[in-house]
Design a protein around this nucleic acid. Structure first.
Lengths: 214, 214
DNA sequence: GGTAAAATCAAACAATCGTTTGATTTTTAT
DNA sequence: ATAAAAATCAAACGATTGTTTGATTTTACC
């Protein structure tokens, strides 16, 4: 599906409001007002509020397809380097689209699911899990990684940690005394901390290397 | 605050519906119908829908206070054993109250927060983080744990992993071919897998021990 | 420049929302 | 048994919901 500038404007406003207040908590009049369009434009362009969030998923999902897969082709990297790239790319993707992933998280918490949205999420998660499993199995094959690794829960830890860190970033700011830090600077700070933490976590957990106590 | 049987009945139905469909997505008529009470009873007992969810938080938060803290007093346990108890108690708490923690997760994703609820969540999270930090610092003091551990992100990984595992348990079921498993049995299965995974994760990450490749 | 299509608008639509009302029943206590 | 208090109910309240209508303006094309 192709969207014109005004449609994208509506989608992006809706994305922010859905992330802030939830789908049911956001009225089409809220969206129309913030997007500076008439209320009827939403039904006119998308058919319904429900179809609008489906359009949002169609747009965002279509964007970042097959960006990570290329890292698999690079044969110059050792297994742990590929894992590190996977970690950083996950952090970039989630931190760079916090509103959208907030909505995705809400959608997964909900039981009244839209079939097409559920399918999008399931497909994305399947790709993520399979990519990580492939990387870990590669490492195991060359003897670099441990054998007793819970493959499906490793990706749960990766995405669970990032998602939870984003959801609780205000709390993180507070207990680490970073309330006065510039917002953009804080985002960079959190990315770096998450990257270090997760790389250390994965290195300790999946590799056979001994600890380097520094 | 003390609640009578009918009030608790309303609160528990509301908890399930809020978890399923969100606060804004659940109408007081939905709640009244499923709880077999008249709509006006909600305003009559709680004042408003908003006050109802606050009552839910007051009730659930008041229940499990200071249950974990006692594990700190036990001096017979070595640091990693205390960490393992912390992990299992977190799994028990979140898996045993999935509806409530679903609502808590939604609340943290939202920007339009109720002050009293935010305060409840902040207090709970603060206790969780401080308890884990204390345990890790105890282990570091006796030389059992590594020094370079990101204290605040360790609890993010613990609670992020559990929350995300619960939110995506249908997906977990599917990719592990457990769709035919009895629901109660699956819950036990997931608890055990989570416990093993997180204990292994924490052992590898925080201790100085070398890996035991089995 | 004229005409058809697309876009925009205020207004109205029926449905649902949270809450209140006022009468009625049930419970409690003397 | 009686009076006061608590609980329950159907009905109605005004506000807001998502959507549609029909008229009007803007855009695109020959």
């Amino acid at each position: 599906m192709e969207y014109n500038a005004k449609q994208i404007q509506i989608i992006e406003v809706a994305e922010r409001l859905f992330a802030d207040k939830g789908f049911a908590g956001t009225s089409v009049r809220d969206i129309a007002q913030e997007a500076n369009v008439n209320v009827s434009m939403i039904s006119y362009y998308f058919g319904s509020k429900e179809k609008l969030i489906e359009a949002l998923f169609a747009m965002r999902m279509g964007e970042s397809r097959s960006r990570m897969e290329m890292l698999l082709g690079n044969e110059d990297l050792i297994p742990i380097q590929k894992i590190n790239i996977l970690i950083d790319s996950a952090i970039d993707r989630l931190m760079g689209n916090q509103c959208f992933h907030n909505i995705m998280m809400r959608e997964q918490l909900s039981s009244e699911r839209t079939p097409t949205i559920s399918e999008h999420i399931r497909g994305l998660k399947l790709r993520n899990v399979q990519l990580m499993q492939k990387l870990i199995e590669e490492g195991q094959a060359v003897g670099a990684f441990r054998k007793n690794i819970d493959l499906s829960l490793m990706s749960t830890t990766l995405y669970g940690t990032i998602n939870y860190a984003i959801a609780t970033q205000d709390f993180y700011k507070r207990i680490n005394g970073l309330e006065d830090m510039e917002e953009a600077e804080f985002q960079i700070h959190l990315r770096r901390k998450l990257s270090q933490h997760l790389k250390s976590l994965f290195k300790s957990t999946v590799t056979n290397e001994h600890h380097n106590q520094n």
